[in-house]
């Protein structure tokens, strides 16, 4: 995400603060604006790669801003951040030109992953793989290639590894992984995440014989893609 320009139009300063920090840490150039009218001006005047936009804004709301932007011919991707989670609100946003919709509260890493996905979709012809250094995950065959070896992952294993690869180095809690991979929002009081990670490690280790693993366990917190192992 190095150098991509991201105008952030969000009137809640505390939210804008950690989003700006997160995106900046991921390599983006963030321009923060607190109202819709100024946001539209910035979006029209400056060239940007992707727009991150709240809906409930002073001076001009996000829906109206999007409409104006699209009417002017601007087709840059737009991600909506909003506390309004009803289906009607989402549909209206997509109808008015949004490319993605992230309800609040959200994970900054989730936002980063979606920004990457949208910008890569535009710049890249192929979207069948996720690649990070020497780790490649084939989205069609569920094949993972690492350190010269290749293996097929089960659907859950594939989903888990893909999730970690969205933001290499970022720590994901077991709860986050459960929600993304198994689509449950309760804690089944189980170690299924640990078991799944262990299976991935065993499959990869068996193939290349090395005890090292691209997945690192962070004590008491969760798991992350071990970027140091991937140099």
């Amino acid at each position: 995400m190095n150098g991509i320009k991201v105008p952030l139009i969000e009137d809640e300063l505390k939210i804008a603060d950690f989003v700006t920090k997160g995106l900046t840490a991921a390599g983006a150039q963030v321009t923060h604006v607190t109202d819709g009218a100024t946001g539209l001006k910035v979006a029209l005047e400056d060239s940007h790669d992707i727009l991150v936009l709240d809906i409930m804004l002073p001076a001009m709301n996000g829906i109206e801003l999007m409409r104006e932007l699209r009417v002017s011919g601007n087709s840059r991707p737009i991600i909506i951040l909003s506390a309004k989670v009803d289906l009607e609100d989402r549909l209206e946003s997509f109808q008015k030109g949004a490319n993605d919709y992230l309800p609040k509260p959200f994970y900054v890493e989730e936002l980063i992953a979606r920004i990457k996905a949208l910008t890569q979709r535009i710049s890249s012809d192929s979207s069948d793989e996720i690649v990070y250094k020497n780790l490649t995950l084939d989205l069609v065959s569920r094949r993972v290639d690492w350190q010269g070896s290749s293996t097929i992952l089960s659907p859950r294993e594939f989903s888990l590894l893909g999730y970690l690869m969205r933001s290499p180095g970022n720590i994901y809690s077991r709860q986050q992984i459960l929600k993304h991979v198994w689509a449950i929002d309760f804690d089944p009081e189980t170690n299924v995440v640990d078991v799944c990670v262990l299976r991935i490690k065993r499959k990869l280790n068996r193939k290349n014989g090395s005890p090292a693993s691209p997945i690192e366990s962070v004590r008491g917190v969760g798991y992350r893609l071990a970027i140091e192992e991937l140099e």
């Binding site: 809640e12 939210i15 603060d17 950690f18 506390a83 609040k104 509260p105 959200f106």
Partner: peptide, 11 residues
């Protein structure tokens, strides 16, 4: 509640 929760979790 969503806004303060967003701030809490983000930070």
């Amino acid at each position: 509640l969503r806004t303060p929760l967003t701030i809490l979790r983000g930070n």
